[in-house]
C-alpha cells in the first residue's frame, strides 16, 4: 500500500477548515470565514497568510463603504493540494 504524506500546511485544524470552505464557494470574505470557523480574527489572519504564502489562496483587499474588506479565493494550486490531501487521508483510512 502506498502511503502519501499529509501536507503539513493543510494538516492543521483552522487552515483545513478555511480550505474546505473556500473549495465550496467561488470566493469568500474574511468575516464569512471567521463566522463559519468560529476562529479569532488574529488567528485567522495568521493562518490565511500561511495559506497565501504557500500559494493555496489569493487575497484581495478592497473597500466597501469605507470599510476594508478582505476577499479570499482558492487557487488551482490550492485545489490540487486539497485533492491530494483528501486522497492521502483516504489511503490512511482504508487501512
Amino acid at each position: 500500500m502506498d502511503f502519501k504524506e499529509l501536507d503539513p500546511i493543510l494538516h492543521s485544524q483552522l487552515r483545513l477548515a478555511v480550505m474546505s470552505l473556500l473549495i465550496s464557494v467561488k470566493e469568500a470574505e474574511f468575516t464569512f470565514l471567521k463566522e463559519k470557523t468560529n476562529a479569532t480574527s488574529g488567528n485567522l489572519s495568521v493562518q490565511i497568510s500561511k495559506l497565501k504564502e504557500a500559494g493555496y489562496i489569493e487575497i484581495t483587499k478592497q473597500f466597501n463603504n469605507n470599510y476594508p474588506q478582505t476577499i479570499c479565493k482558492i487557487t488551482p494550486k490550492g485545489i490540487l493540494a486539497f485533492e491530494n490531501y483528501v486522497k492521502a487521508l483516504q489511503s490512511y483510512m482504508t487501512l
Binding site: 474546505s20 470552505l21 473549495i23
Partner: peptide, 12 residues
Amino acid sequence: SMQLITSMINKA
C-alpha cells in the same frame, strides 16, 4: 480531518 472537511463543506 475528514469530519472537519465534511462539516465545513456542509456549512458553505
